[in-house]
Design a binder for these strands. Structure first.
Ligand SMILES: [Mn+2]
Ligand SMILES: [Mn+2]
Ligand SMILES: [Mn+2]
Ligand SMILES: [Mn+2]
Lengths: 218, 218
DNA sequence: TTATATTTTTAGACTAGTCTAAATTTTATT
DNA sequence: AATAAAATTTAGACTAGTCTAAAAATATAA
């Protein structure tokens, strides 16, 4: 089968492909995995040998069907475990990512499907990210962020684009959890800082923060 | 921290120490881990450098306090995950060991304690093996096996000494699950084959099988 | 108690994954 | 189109863990 390392490369390539990029660059992968471009080149060659990616020197890399299937299945595991940790073991949404990074590699079909069933087939993880179904089908978020809204508009929080502990923790303190209802009261022209109502409470939020919060208009 | 490999060596040494052996041999470890004695020697040196074992050339190896703590905590994880898989995800007792071998290495204090709580602090795993408490305290089974019993004696199944899929599967077919009540009806003198009543059903069981079944007399 | 068998260790080689430094290719800029 | 800059690949080295074959130490037996 595939090593943890190979799986992490496939996942990284998958995520980098989502921005519609054709041919994921060596540097981008290296940055995402906090490794060096030369290491990435070595690994790409191995993945190409295993028919998990297609690759021509200097031209970037693309997942094959086989490679995409592996990546999506890892992501499915990751997000199901995050649901488990939050729903069943009472972890907070800013605590689960690192654990899920390890659990995701226990990639056994039966375990995944039993877990899915135990959790009652959740559609989204604790950060609002969609969980691929068992056939690998996955709905991608439309990325409307809080920063796209105008004064007077209303919306609901449905996800985050940034998953760092500090960001998630900050959001929770501002009551900006999944499902929170928002009304835009004012926007500072200079730096796009927003004054909003979150479940009827006044909150001030920077552009840095608002552009990473995914919302659904209503 | 420690690698998966190091943890597996510590666990193997721990288990081999349980038979009261003073100084676990290189060959025994190699056999248990299905590796070569020369590999074991290399690893022992590394574990000794990390103060996880004490070791003198040719004299066998012993766990230090530190090494024992790691081993017991891995075993605690392993057994808690086995309980989870059986109790919550409806796996059978012959299906969980290999998955637990992987899950046990996600050795994060908070996860272990939350899982323990979620499972309502179980004392034994699905094979009757005792689960160490959070301070590493562990009760060892007294090894009274079915094969120790005489005609007419009564007992209850409390565990197994052999964990192979085929053995566990066979036991289940003979209704010899944890808690099953046994009465010894007859013993063949030649090969110690037993004729027993299991929850009032007649069962014939070989010595090979009966000497791996841990029971409590009553 | 010397010879033989067994166990354990050492020496040297191999794979996976990583790194630095240097070479090559592609892209951007004059 | 020539040159500079950036991205990518190659070359060679390193670590963790493993192996085979040979040497050394210990245990067993004549
Ligand atoms: Mn995550
Ligand atoms: Mn998530
Ligand atoms: Mn087990
Ligand atoms: Mn068990």
């Amino acid at each position: 089968m595939n090593s943890f390392t190979e799986e992490n490369y496939l996942k990284a390539i998958y995520k980098l492909s989502l921005n519609g990029v054709q041919g994921v660059s060596t540097n981008a992968i290296a940055y995402k995995l906090a490794t060096k471009p030369s290491s990435v080149t070595d690994m790409i060659k191995k993945l190409a040998d295993k028919k998990l990616v297609s690759y021509q020197k200097y031209q970037g890399v693309n997942l094959t069907k086989k490679g995409r299937d592996v990546a999506v299945s890892i992501i499915r595991n990751h997000r199901l475990w995050e649901v488990f940790l939050v729903e069943k073991l009472n972890f907070k949404w800013d605590e689960v990512h690192d654990l899920a990074e390890e659990l995701e590699h226990i990639n056994t079909h039966k375990l995944t499907e039993r877990l899915d069933e135990f959790l009652d087939f959740p559609k989204f993880d604790p950060h609002g990210d969609p969980i691929p179904d068992k056939d690998g089908y996955i709905v991608q978020h439309k990325d409307i962020t809080l920063s796209d809204l105008k004064i007077g508009e209303k919306a609901v929080v449905v996800g985050v684009k940034e998953h760092s502990k500090s960001y998630l923790n900050y959001l929770e303190q501002q009551h900006l959890v999944l499902g929170a209802e928002i009304i835009i009261k004012d926007i500072v022209e200079f730096d796009a800082t927003m004054q909003i109502l979150v479940n009827n409470k006044h909150v001030i939020i920077s552009n840095q923060a608002s552009k990473n919060l995914i919302v659904k208009k209503n």
